[in-house]
Design a protein around this nucleic acid. Structure first.
Lengths: 338, 338
DNA sequence: TTGTAAGCGTTATCAT
DNA sequence: ATGATAACGCTTACAA
């Protein structure tokens, strides 16, 4: 049952010492060409594969990075993971995946699980519940390489890779304004999340630029980010029950956007007759239809790639990184038939 | 920079031997309550975390499983991975992710990379290019636990978890027939894939049951499964150029379905005026619209869970598995406005 | 009850 | 050029 061959086996078979075999296997020069060929040939013949675990123990690195996201089954994250995986495998790293399902406790548990020596670094997008990040600062201070992407903390000095959420939100909101909509509601997720805050700022500045004043009831939070449909149904019902009903909604999240469409459908609120929608979304299926939904798309794949490149750079750096970088990539506004 | 504490550190600090510390840390009975408490308290104080790499080396297992799929950014696979992750983490296993991008060579490379002792078992959905599976049989014979899901090989005796593709395809095709469509084309991916074959059978038997005879040109292959838009555009153009144009298309894949919609849009072929579509798809966004697209949904999450449970069962089995199981889960037909 | 030593697979250091 | 030995962190016979 899966008895792998080791250096020791080769040594025994060839009447050599393990150190000689080891040297032959790598490209040391302190070895005779003859022995080297002998070992190499035999190794190939019996299909010798070095044991990465033994190497990890010796070299104190695992050649694996951990990825922590809220949900894999979300267009944004799956695209980001695609980018992460593409870079990681090119550089010989494994990608270990874990989901928080937006739970703070799960996030803490997963971070601990991954951090205790089974990964060389961490790529993290915070859960919606996370406001205290001491589980991360602790590891960061102990020197575990980490890069945040998408949902990043403020309180920690690290590398961060994000989209220009503020600008994306601004453009979507302004687009609605330019199309003549005035009472633009805002549907967002947890107030903890950096992306929510940034998108809220973009929304507010678009309104401000066009001198539109709206009551605070136009802003609705769905802390579970679309996971709990009732939450969003309540929010939307409340919006539609306002004395001055909104004529448009700007939705600040991927899952929130599709969730919103689903609730509107359920409540038989018609697009674009009753309301129009603009929202953040990375679903490519959305593009196939023309239901007056404008979407802001994040460069998820590129964000994943960039974050991974940065992380590997930190991991493999001989000297401590001098300064922390925050990369901001631009979003795209996909305009459909509004 | 990240100097982790080891059993040796504890031993030195407390004036004990490493074995005593090791015993105290686990629940051996051959230790005095006093020493045990001493060690446990100190370990907690300095936040001792056992090194999983050392454990892996000793116990010759990694507590990690490898997952090989073609694309993460695909509703079906991301949902399956969600199911996989949920079970794996419950049982204390890491999930190592890798993508083939439908390439046989990449599949071989990834399988090798993962198999050489960095995972305890493999969950695999074959790439569209894969017809020769000797890279897998070799490992299987050497005893590496593996479970196939979704796209499974015929030539190997292992556990397999799939959806009832034949029935799903049958139902979708029959639904079209019952709605009065007669010239139903079939758009599928690689002829190597089990799912393609199974769905083709379902399609054929629905036609047969209703005594519909169609020329073979009604069946189009897109070996790259939607990755190359031109391929699909050619296929659809050819279909629409037939002397007897099809009045419906049954599409046999997730990515193929959305790809088909996208091509139809580009070619300005209208649904449902010019043609109607039924296809396999796990996208939940599709549900939000009513463009006369009927979809067959696979229980992706459950397939992932089941495959993982089976794999862990094999991995942790004390005795060799007596018989191989093939689990078949039912699909759902989502009927929209055709 | 506790300590010593060997071993998991590999590489680096020091002899030879 | 090659071999013996120690070390990475941990567990487990075997001794004491």
């Amino acid at each position: 049952m899966f008895e792998p061959v080791t250096i020791k086996d080769i040594a025994k078979a060839l009447g050599l010492s393990t150190s000689t075999v080891s040297r032959a296997l790598r490209d040391t020069h302190e070895i005779s060409a003859a022995t080297k060929k002998l070992v190499l040939d035999y190794a190939k013949e019996i299909n010798y594969q070095p044991n990465p675990i033994a190497l990890s123990l010796k070299e104190r690195r695992t050649k694996a990075i951990g990825v922590i996201v809220s949900e894999v089954a979300n267009s944004y994250f799956s695209q980001a993971i695609n980018g992460i995986e593409s870079i990681a495998y090119d550089r010989g790293y494994h990608v270990i995946l874990s989901q928080t399902h937006e739970s703070y406790d799960t996030e803490v548990a997963n971070v601990q699980h991954l951090a205790s020596r089974s990964v060389d670094g961490l790529l993290i997008s915070l859960s919606a519940e996370t406001s205290d990040i001491s589980h991360l600062t602790a590891l960061h201070e102990r020197g575990l390489p980490m890069v945040f992407f998408d949902r990043v903390p403020e309180e920690i000095e690290t590398h961060k890779v994000i989209a220009n959420n503020e600008k994306g939100a601004f453009e979507a909101t302004e687009y609605l304004i330019q199309k003549g909509f005035k009472r633009i509601a805002h549907l967002t997720s947890s107030s903890y999340l950096s992306i929510s805050k940034e998108r809220l700022i973009g929304y507010r500045s678009a309104l401000a630029k066009h001198q539109i004043q709206l009551p605070e009831e136009y802003i609705k939070y769905c802390p579970h980010g679309g996971k709990i449909p009732e939450e969003m149904e309540t929010a939307i019902s409340e919006l539609m029950a306002l004395p001055e009903k909104p004529d448009a909604i700007f939705v600040a999240g991927d899952r929130l956007s599709t969730g919103c469409l689903s609730v509107l459908k359920k409540l038989k609120i018609k697009i674009p007759e009753d309301i129009v929608i603009a929202g953040f979304s990375n679903s490519d299926v959305l593009d196939l239809f023309n239901p007056s939904i404008t979407s802001v798309r994040q460069p998820a794949f590129e964000i994943g790639q960039l974050a991974t490149e940065k992380l590997l750079q930190i991991i493999e750096a001989k000297y401590p990184i001098e300064e922390f970088e925050k990369k901001v990539l631009e979003t795209d506004l996909f305009v459909r038939g509004i």
